[in-house]
Amino acid sequence: MHDFTFHAPDSLSAVLDLLAEHDGDAKLLAGGTSLTTLLKQSLIAPDHIVSLHRVPGLDSIEVSNGELRIGGLTTQRDMERSSVVKEHAPLLAEAYRRVATVRIRNVATVGGGIAQADPAMDPPPSLLILGASVVATSTRGERVIPISEVYADYYETTLESDEIVTELRVPAQPSGAGWTYIKYLPRTEDDYATVSVAAIGSVEGGSIADIRVALGAVAPTAVRASVVEEALAGQAPTLDALREASQAVADIVDPTDDPRGSAWYKRDMSVVFTRRALEQVLGVS
């Protein structure tokens, strides 16, 4: 493994100073489940690693003005188990519950997962349809970025190299609406999805009032299926309507061939699992 200097600062301000000092040549380490793997495989070779394990705080889950405010160092296990998350955004608790194994979720953090930006991770589709945003902090100050503008490409974000994800903000899920997170796994339960779909939907007066859909693992970033949402808004929730609208995701996904499936298979399964997710959240069968 590559040689590096390991820093373990005990305050956020010391973290920000180190990032500014070693701009572009320092990587943050939170739970380390992704970063250590990249280091071991020599896919990254920073001269400085700034560990966050001594930084106090940044791990609380609170509700403010109907919005969840989640510290960047909150573990994914705490997201899965939090009664506050289960109450205000059960979809999000379920998405984090499906990440890898308990051993990984015990240490992997919310902020670390966002910064890693692996498009096959479980939370991104749910974060997209819940309209989440990220607070990025540096010595230059704070900025709030919609999650849809954070994910840029495979493992790439619009976060600057001197910024740290200090908070995730998630508007409460509409109560009474249907919701689902489908993780399609042909191999083992702890694997990354071949295709994943998160959806929220409700029907009022016989027509579709609210419908939101996003997919994971089938493009360089998680993708919002706006084309499906626009086709269905205001329509009667019939099986034919859902089947026809789902076809449109074939054109917005851009999967790759890998051991979890060929590109054409993932494209076909994107359509199938989008339709199933729509059926579930709108109560159509």
């Binding site: 390991f6 373990a8 489940t33 250590t36 560990s51 308990v102 015990n106 240490v107």
Partner: peptide
């Protein structure tokens, strides 16, 4: 698998300095 500060963790992807 080991127990690290009360929670099980994967020691192969944890740095000793961490």
């Amino acid at each position: 698998t080991i127990e690290l500060d009360g929670r099980i963790a994967a020691s192969c992807i944890t740095l000793a300095v961490r």
